[in-house]
Design a protein around this nucleic acid. Structure first.
Lengths: 233, 233
DNA sequence: CTGTAAGGATTGTTCAACAATCCAGCAATA
DNA sequence: TATTGCTGGATTGTTGAACAATCCTTACAG
């Protein structure tokens, strides 16, 4: 497979990462900008995004805007209603149930069977836990939510799968929209700080089975709490 | 959540499915057409897709073509090289490993813990098995490959999750590209016909645990076989 | 109150153009 | 010969403008 020529190998390696050097397209940057506004909550669920406004605001052409919007629609960050426009997605009850159904399948499985369970992976989980504790201490509950996402991303990262990582990123972005739809973000995330820590300790003790069970219970409770909040909404 | 008024509920439900009635956009239809050409193997991995050719061939504008191509790029059916064009994706060794990593996490979990394990779900699996047997009897090995996809889709359907279904559809489309990259499709799929049947029988006996184990073994063997074929390529 | 008919606004799609980039081929040089 | 540098042609990236199709609002008539 590999040749005996180190120079040749180095060039091949360079070739593989070529895509990373090329600057991103304009449409990608527009998509990134809009996505950030959405996940940060500055664009509320249900808000309308007229193409022309985005053109003038971002200084790009309408076609480019449309390309970016289409991308975000496939990511479920936005929703398109034909001939009416695109809106920030409003995940409903079914969306919450579905997202948690996926998470309950994937996250415990990654914890239990992930092939990249090592010190570095556990350290990443610990880092996310500490990040959450620090954010809570600073009363920054947006940062707590972000840290929570990092926690779950670290769990899935144990599967060592780029495709799974990407999918989890989409699901977590959708979860942020769920949180933005309802008040009381603080009350929601706080009780999970200690549970994150408990799961992390199980992982540090290399008790993956117990950790997986705890993750599943965690997700079941969180879903239940969200569904109740949706009913009261 | 639900009101006491059944008429109101019905109207709300209708509203939700409104998108399904509206005809799809031109870009979507273009994407469907190109995707079909790719998964059916008429467009081989590595083939270049010049925008202008697609315009004249399909009779649509270049912008519309670009929108469709972008969509297929995010689906990993095509690959874009900036300023060079889009090509039919050529899944490499790493892609195969990653796809199977995801499948080994998801499929057994769906079989084991899926919340939609009932007679209808098992019947769908049985239908896919029969479809494969019939296709093999007719010596139609493309149809065998398709039936195999239906089999695995039926397994994942036990999770009863639209998002998971969609993801599995993408992974299976990517797998078709893998198969198109190498010869001997017949030899690859044939031994799995009987294994599909064995898994299905376990499910019909409601032995989900054994079925899940068998699915995992199945996927491990298939991946190994593909990786060996890649090395010999 | 229901139904209908403009009118305006937004999206869906096309077309034409230009800049930026890449590629193949050829010339120049060591 | 082999490598470098240049040039012309082709393709992509992006823009702007235009038109048809669709939707929403408002007004009006019955």
């Amino acid at each position: 497979m590999t040749t005996a020529d180190p120079t040749h190998d180095a060039l091949v390696s360079l070739g593989r990462s070529r895509r990373l050097v090329t600057r991103t397209s304009t449409a990608d940057r527009v998509a990134d900008a809009v996505r950030e506004e959405v996940v940060e909550g500055r664009l509320r669920p249900g808000a309308r995004l007229p193409e022309h406004e985005l053109c003038t605001a971002l200084g790009v052409s309408r076609n480019t805007v449309r390309e970016a919007l289409s991308q975000l629609v496939t990511e479920r960050v936005l929703m398109r209603e034909p001939n009416r426009g695109v809106f920030v997605a409003e995940p409903d009850r079914d969306a919450v149930r579905d997202v948690y159904r996926v998470r309950r399948l994937v996250e415990p499985a990654a914890v239990l069977h992930g092939e990249a369970f090592d010190d570095a992976a556990v350290a990443a989980v610990r880092a996310a836990v500490s990040e959450g504790v620090a954010a809570a201490g600073a009363d920054d509950w947006t940062a707590v939510a972000t840290a929570n996402q990092h926690f779950h991303r670290a769990l899935v990262a144990m599967a060592d799968s780029p495709r799974l990582d990407q999918q989890m990123a989409l699901l977590l972005a959708e979860m942020r929209l769920v949180f933005h739809r309802m008040p009381g973000v603080r009350e929601f995330h706080e009780p999970y700080l200690s549970r994150n820590d408990a799961i992390c300790r199980l992982l540090e003790a290399a008790d993956r089975a117990a950790a997986a069970v705890e993750v599943e219970r965690y997700l079941r409770d969180a879903e239940q709490q969200l569904l109740v909040a949706y009913d009261a909404l």
